[in-house]
Computed example of a mutant assay.
Amino acid sequence: MRQRYLALLSVFASLPAMALTFQTRLESIEWTVEGDKFECRLSQPITDFGSGEFVRRAGEQATFRLKAYNPMLGGGSATLLAAAAPWQPGRGDINLGSVRLGSGDVLFNSSQLQAGRLIGGLMEGRSPVVRHYSREGGVSEVRLLPVRFSKAYGDYQSCVAKLLPKNFDQVRQSEVGFPGGGIDLDAKAKARLQVMLEFLKADPTVNHIQLDGHSDNSGNRLTNRDLSRRRALAVMEFFKANGIPESQIEMRFHGERYPLAPNTNAANRAKNRRVNVQLQRVPVAEKPAPQAAAPANAAATS
């Protein structure tokens, strides 16, 4: 396979500046849909080149990327188009802006806006086209065709409907507030933790939860330290009640030591009454030992 591409490149290098188009023959066009709870992919193989692929991660809109067996387009920038079909007289191409070409297997990732407009164009019979102008004046194009797209897009939408609400980058850190004081989780806090819980159950590689409890400075230091402990404990109990082993949870508490905002008014103090929650992927041999907690000897009043 590699020798075939090297031979093609040798032929192209010996030719004068010209237009070169990569696309699959009409009768061989196919769209494939793959995915799980974390990501859905809708792709079309491109003969002698690679593939064009729409990728939608959980919690995000789709992007479009171009994958190549070999970096035939070279570096620099290229123009992304939603091109009108030859059988659509009077309709011009839609210029979606430029993309920066890389040198790896994935030549570029479009913006979410560009991908959305490409999908809309495919539904109208348009072709996603990547057009690259070389320094020698030649033009190279990579073209996907809209043949059989509607059926594949329906399958892709079915995959999208099963995605988790958020991806790991979006859920890995969160903050649970206790704006009214005390140690009980309110509805907003439980909803936020529920999203994290869904991800934990879907991805067993996320196997460690770090909890850091905090307070404002309303009470004395001993009271505040205990309040921060009991708030972190409330979050721990939520996870344990929903099937997360205690061995996967590390709890720390800091009292008033690390405020988010100066404790100068009621609104700022409300922000400081919180538990920071962080999800991690930790190899079993590296899991930290739980930190011993201070005894509870203060009432929940701040």
Score class of each variant (00 low, 15 high):
39 E>M: 11
104 G>K: 10
231 R>W: 12
240 K>F: 04
8 L>D: 09
296 A>Y: 05
221 R>D: 15
237 E>T: 13
210 Q>R: 13
114 Q>P: 11
219 G>S: 07
283 P>W: 08
93 D>K: 00
202 A>N: 07
29 I>D: 01
32 T>R: 05
26 L>I: 09
245 P>Q: 09
20 L>S: 03
269 R>H: 02
189 A>V: 08
234 A>T: 13
191 A>C: 03
211 L>T: 05
90 G>R: 04
96 L>K: 01
107 L>V: 05
289 A>P: 00
185 L>D: 05
224 N>C: 11
91 R>C: 05
255 G>Y: 02
262 P>R: 07
288 P>M: 08
272 N>Q: 05
180 G>V: 03
196 M>I: 05
51 S>A: 14
94 I>L: 14
35 G>M: 11
254 H>N: 09
279 L>C: 03
255 G>F: 02
159 C>D: 04
33 V>S: 02
156 Y>A: 09
21 T>V: 15
86 P>G: 03
100 R>H: 11
93 D>P: 00
43 S>R: 08
197 L>D: 08
214 H>F: 15
210 Q>T: 09
85 A>V: 02
190 K>V: 15
55 V>S: 10
46 I>V: 15
12 F>I: 12
48 D>C: 00
258 Y>C: 01
168 F>T: 06
127 S>Y: 06
16 P>M: 11
17 A>S: 14
287 K>S: 06
255 G>R: 00
154 G>C: 03
275 V>G: 04
150 S>V: 01
196 M>S: 13
229 R>Y: 13
245 P>N: 12
44 Q>A: 05
234 A>F: 09
187 A>W: 05
174 S>E: 08
154 G>Y: 03
256 E>R: 07
128 P>E: 06
172 R>A: 08
88 Q>K: 04
2 R>Q: 12
146 P>V: 11
52 G>A: 13
